[in-house]
Each structure stands twice: as structure tokens, then as C-alpha cells.
Amino acid sequence: NITNLCPFDEVFNATRFASVYAWNRKRISNCVADYSVLYNFAPFFAFKCYGVSPTKLNDLCFTNVYADSFVIRGNEVSQIAPGQTGNIADYNYKLPDDFTGCVIAWNSNKLDSKVGGNYNYLYRLFRKSNLKPFERDISTEIYQAGNKPCNGVAGFNCYFPLRSYGFRPTYGVGHQPYRVVVLSFELLHAPATVCGPKKST
């Protein structure tokens, strides 16, 4: 009989979020998941679920829940969905086509923008091939755009693969920082350890 609540607040209220190319993952297990707390949290810009209804989450049990978190621009949030393409979905964070879970995003301009620009948040701009679902690539190898080998030196046709967002408070909404948490639900042939409040007695 599990009684402790799942530590969703640790994920959602973290002081610093990860850059999207180096997205953070927390495994959540052996706890009671009260999703209504999240669902009623006012400032969400997006709360979209795939393969599961957000209002039914509290009735369900899962083997594991993974909480992935990172920061992207407002106009990139739409790429955090199954079957998407674009710089983020291709080179930074890719969801599987059969994704079961929820994508939760909110504007973090007050936290993550600075006058003069916040350059701490990076994304991958160049990559030889697209990421596989949930693949994480933190390499900083110089990207070779031409035929000539770069030998690890940036220059003509040789690019550092990461780019900084440089968030400023005055940017338009599409270019403002958004914090994103992706909850993915794993249902294995194993005992369920993460259940909603109704199922955990």
C-alpha cells in the first residue's frame, strides 16, 4: 500500500531547467500520482495528452512514469508532439509516433530571460542525422557541412553544433522561453508502482 505522493513538484518547480539538447529525465516510481494538482495549476500554456485522457489519469496505474524537462522557445512547443519535424524534434528531443503521455508547457519569461540576454539555454542546430525517439545527444563535436574534414576547428563550413537562445524579456511570445515537462507513461508486464489516488488503496 503506497502512500507517499509522487515528487512532481520537484520537477515542475525546479529552480533551473535543462537546455533542450541535454534534456533532463527523472524516473518516478513507487508513489501516488495526483495529476489533478498539475491539471489545476493555472499558468499552463499547453497540457496535451496522447493515448490517454488527462482527466482519467487519476484512475490509472503505470509501471513507471518518466518526467523529461527542458526549455525551448514558445514557437517550438508545437514540435513536442508525435510525428513532428523541425530543429527541436529532429536534433534535440524526439517523441515516438506511438507516444503515451502528456506534454505540459508554460511561459517562463520572468524566470529564464535576462536584460542583455540569458545565454545559458542551448539547443542543437546541426546534426548529421535525426534523433531516434528519446535519444539524447550531448556531443559538442564540430559539425562538418562541406567535404573538408574540420579536425575539431570551427570555421568555413565547420560549425559548433550548439546555439544559444539568448532570451531577453522584451522578445515577442514566440521567442520567449517556455518550460516543458513531458510525462511518459510506461506500461510493462510488471507490477504497477505509480497509481492515481483512487487506485492506491
Rank of each mutant, 00 (worst) to 15 (best):
R163E: 13
F134Y: 14
G196F: 09
I2F: 12
N109Y: 08
G146D: 11
P161M: 03
P133M: 02
V181N: 00
F185D: 03
V52C: 07
Y39K: 15
N151K: 14
F47D: 01
R27K: 15
Y91L: 07
R163I: 09
Y66C: 06
C195M: 10
K198Q: 12
I138Q: 11
L57P: 03
K114E: 14
P149I: 11
Y143M: 10
K94G: 01
N109H: 13
G117R: 07
R127E: 04
R136H: 07
L187C: 13
Y50P: 00
F8N: 02
A42H: 08
N58E: 11
N147L: 11
I2N: 15
N92F: 01
I142D: 07
A145Y: 12
P7V: 08
F45L: 11
F17A: 03
V153G: 13
N147W: 09
T140I: 07
C150D: 06
T140L: 09
K114Q: 14
T170W: 13
L38P: 03
K128G: 11
V65M: 13
F126H: 15
A154M: 13
G86N: 03
E186H: 10
F45H: 15
Y123G: 03
G152F: 07
S108K: 01
L111M: 13
S19T: 04
L131I: 13
S53P: 08
E76M: 03
Y93S: 02
A33G: 07
K128Y: 08
A42L: 08
Y178I: 13
F17W: 15
G116Y: 09
S113C: 07
Y143I: 12
V173R: 12
A145V: 13
F134A: 08
R73L: 06
F99L: 01
E141D: 14
F12A: 04
F17N: 06
F45E: 15
F134V: 05
Y165H: 06
N58M: 07
R179W: 02
A145H: 13
R16I: 10
P149D: 14
T201E: 15
S200W: 12
G101D: 00
V103A: 00
F126P: 07
Y123H: 13
N64G: 10
S78M: 07
Y119W: 10
N75A: 12
G155L: 07
N75W: 05
N151E: 12
F47V: 10
R73H: 05
G74H: 05
S69I: 01
P96F: 00
T100H: 09
T170G: 15
K128Q: 12
Y91G: 05
S29R: 10
G155Y: 06
R16T: 15
N92R: 01
K94Q: 03
A22N: 13
E76T: 01
H175P: 04
N87H: 14
I104H: 00
D34I: 03
G155E: 11
L122A: 15
T15S: 12
L131W: 01
P54N: 07
I142A: 09
G101H: 00
G117W: 05
F44W: 09
V20T: 04
I2Q: 13
L38H: 01
N1C: 05
N157L: 09
N130K: 15
S36E: 10
A67T: 05
N87I: 15
K94V: 01
S69K: 01
F41H: 15
Y66A: 04
K114D: 13
T170V: 09
N107G: 05
A67Y: 04
A145W: 10
S164E: 10
G174F: 08
